[in-house]
Design a protein around this nucleic acid. Structure first.
Lengths: 157, 157
DNA sequence: TATTGTTATACTCTATAACTATA
DNA sequence: TATAGTTATAGAGTATAACAATA
């Protein structure tokens, strides 16, 4: 490493250039911002990221194959196996081997799982939490719609 | 695990309920979508995610402290150290210890680093790539603006 | 004492391939 | 042969704390 003397630019803002218009960059920062409170909420309940979402979707879609749930949530099979195992050990999820295809696993919530989801669902659907996050109601609605279109959720006609 | 027989719901869509309006969920899926092509592009150049962004910002802000660059990109100090080390070993980044504060490190691009950034910057500023990603030009502009507001980038006045 | 950056450790998410059991 | 899920391993990002050098 060299040595040298410089003026001190410490107080000057950092320039990001065209990066400020890059979706990849902006989405990463946005996700970091959301993830913080998202993560804290889940950790407080003893859950790892993604676990509540899985419980939620299983609750809405009982008796569906594990792989179907994993696919729509973009969770890889190997990861899904461990995640479901944890939720099974927590007593929140039951697994059934259907007669018509004994390779597959169909998931449902136990009573405890359903109670858990019902009790904490409000914390996870954080509409309210983000009203104060730099967006007014109209912008928030736009934001959700644009995100849905972007990820191809709107065209499900 | 139990055994049972069921109708086969495999072809029915999975219900997501109010999750479709959750920013955390939508941002995660959006990021997964962007990250795929983003990641592939970087990997093809032998870079890990985040490395090109760091080179880019160093190029725009020569002789700034390592910690300043890390902070604005939401990179933790420990991670930044390893990232900079890799870019130093690749010959893209130079490190200087300034006389006025010998604890700190000031980063700049080497000639090779600047050439590398110039040669590949177009691939990383993927405006074009996302024109066809379910959003028209107007929506894309809205999307960027909303993301900027959301992460608190717009208020920098 | 506080700050800048480094080192070390561990945990989570992800990716991959080899494996099983069923089909 | 193909498919559903599992197991095992490794890589990458992040978080934390302890540390060295300097202020």
């Amino acid at each position: 490493m060299n040595e040298s003397s410089h003026y001190d630019f410490t107080d000057m803002p950092i320039e990001l250039g065209e990066l400020t218009g890059s979706l990849g960059f902006l989405l990463r920062l946005a996700q970091v911002k959301v993830f913080q409170s998202f993560y804290d909420t889940q950790a407080a309940l003893g859950l790892k990221p993604g676990e509540f979402t899985v419980l939620w979707v299983i609750g809405l879609n009982p008796d569906r194959r594990q792989g179907e749930i994993a696919q729509i949530l973009n969770i890889k099979p190997a990861h899904m196996t461990k995640l479901v195992q944890r939720m099974f050990e927590a007593g929140f999820v039951s697994r059934e081997i259907p007669r018509e295809d004994r390779r597959s696993v169909r998931l449902s919530l136990t009573d405890a799982g359903r109670q858990f989801v019902d009790r904490h669902k409000a914390d996870f659907l954080e509409f309210h939490r983000f009203e104060r996050a730099g967006l007014d109601d109209r912008e928030f609605g736009q934001f959700v719609t644009l995100l849905q279109n972007f990820i191809g959720m709107g065209e499900a006609k």
